[in-house]
Amino acid sequence: MNNNAHTKTKIKIVDLQKAFDDHWVTRGVNLEIPAGQMTVIIGRSGEGKSVLLKQVIGLITPTSGQIIIDGIDITTLNEKEREESFKKFGYVFQFAALLDSLNVFENIGITLIENGASHEEIVPIVKEKLSLVQLSEDTLDKYPSELSGGMRKRVGLARTLVTNPEIILYDEPTTGLDPITSRVIHELMASMQKQFNMTSVIISHDVETFKYADKVALLHEGKILYFCDAKTIWESDNPYIYQFIRGLTQGPITNEIPYYKNKQ
């Protein structure tokens, strides 16, 4: 891993492996994610990028390996200690995963509501986060089914920001969006990154994300094959990176769709 010696490592993943029944999805991932930067993990659909991210946040338990966050291996912690460590994280889901029985206000403020905060305490926080994601207050009474894909993702981001995370994980934030909305989301992620100096990890297929990222990692066949500065990625002669970012059918990455069983 080509890690910058001057940058502190926020998340260190060591020989991480995950099998579902007898099928190995993560086959020994080693990756050092620098603090306060935006790292993009790219890879083909079905390569297990979401599985990797969900292991980092604790939604999926790894079969073996280490996930070291701020020097602490979270895989060795008990449930309560791990819960404490996950307070550092925010997770933005691919399809936002908003609670469809709650309106936008309740979705964004859900952590405050559930922790017993009063309505007067919640309102300014929700409005502040809503303005951060550039949504108007008219949306507060709307339900997720009344929002567009891009708006849902922004509400999902606002909901995550309420918890003031140090690390924010984005699961394919621009998938299924038009180019203009994709750009809005990219700029929003970059803006959050700068404003709050968060460590961002994005999994994506979208090559546009490189413009905003600091580091790029390629996940292929359950391993990180390449890790480099996002600025130099287009000059890379690594055959995997070269093929992937240009979308070439010829190269070391075969056309075969990887098998992946989404089950824990």
Binding site: K54, I57, G58, L59, E83, F86, K87, F89, G90, Y91, F93, Q94, F95, A97, L98, L99, D100, I110, T111, E114, G156, R159, T160, T163
Partner: peptide
């Protein structure tokens, strides 16, 4: 439905 649309995962990530 909440499980398959990741709403339960979202609750977990929000430590609810």
């Amino acid at each position: 439905t909440m499980i398959i649309t990741e709403q339960i995962d979202a609750l977990r990530t929000l430590r609810i």
